[in-house]
């Protein structure tokens, strides 16, 4: 796997797995408008994943479905944040706020990627993720500054999810150990193809901090979690997520749908 394929797969898998989790909410949202919104956001993310997987497939010779359905858990490159269980609406909105704010900054920067296809994908995604981040921010405000119960639940969700965001800024998966170069000197960064995830921390955290402040929520104390999804070391729930997602396709290998 080339460094570019590895990078694109990371972004694709983030979107794919986040979409898979959001899809669960359709028919389970707190109100009908939110069923529509969560489906809409999930669809956008699925669209991003498909575009990126197709781009990966151009060089690996695999289809988007082969990449989505026939890779094993250790080959998925998404951050653990997006695979975690989320049957609580406060958790779902916390996750969406963090993830889509990060995606929005990322795709904003990638619009000037030297890779024309990636820049085009980013140009579409930046508009979508602006809406996703805004939608999540509005819910975080309502829940944080709503009732005592919603404030308590929102703060608890934040405490649980906040540490998992660190992996979004981790650039060590872009190391090229053979060449002994630091991540920010990796060829992908030097030639302007990719964006160094570490550079996204400052703008993302500033935006998140502003939302939390307005929502009367406290920024959680730093806490370290073991989050190595970029290296294919996922949490145990990932196996179940993939079993469900992949089983039908794998039961009829080679068939078209």
């Amino acid at each position: 796997m080339s460094p570019l394929e590895n990078y694109l797969l990371a972004l694709a898998d983030d979107a794919l797995i986040s979409s898979q989790r959001l899809g669960w909410w359709i028919s389970r949202a707190p109100q009908l408008e939110e069923d529509v919104a969560m489906a809409n956001i999930g669809l956008d993310q699925l669209g991003q994943a498909r575009a990126l997987l197709t781009l990966v497939g151009e060089t690996t010779g695999q289809s988007e479905d082969e990449l989505a359905y026939l890779r094993d858990e250790r080959d998925f490159r998404n951050v653990c944040l997006v695979e975690r269980e989320q049957s609580d609406f406060a958790v779902a909105m916390t996750r969406l706020l963090i993830f889509s704010t990060w995606q929005h900054e990322l795709y904003g920067a990638l619009t000037s990627s030297s890779h024309p296809t990636l820049a085009a994908i980013a140009a579409k995604a930046v508009k979508e993720t602006a809406y996703h981040a805004d939608h999540a921010a509005h819910w975080v405000l309502r829940l944080g500054d709503g009732t005592d119960e919603s404030h308590r639940r929102m703060q608890a969700a934040l405490e649980a999810e906040w540490p998992w965001r660190d992996e979004l800024f981790d650039n060590t998966f872009l190391n090229e150990p053979d060449l002994n170069v630091a991540p920010h000197d990796a060829q992908l960064m030097v030639d302007g193809t990719a964006v160094d995830p570490a550079t996204l921390r400052e703008p993302v955290e500033r935006r998140l901090g502003a939302v939390l402040d307005q929502a009367t929520l406290g920024v959680p104390e730093p806490r370290v979690v073991f989050s190595k999804g970029r290296d294919g070391r996922h949490t145990e729930v990932m196996g179940y997520l993939l079993s469900e997602m992949q089983h039908l396709h794998r039961s009829h290998q080679g068939d078209t749908w």
């Binding site: 389970r28 949202a29 707190p30 109100q31 939110e34 609406f89 309502r142 829940l143 709503g146 009732t147 119960e149 919603s150 639940r153």
Partner: peptide
Amino acid sequence: EGAWVREAA
């Protein structure tokens, strides 16, 4: 399960 969310809104 969504009641608390609607109340918060």
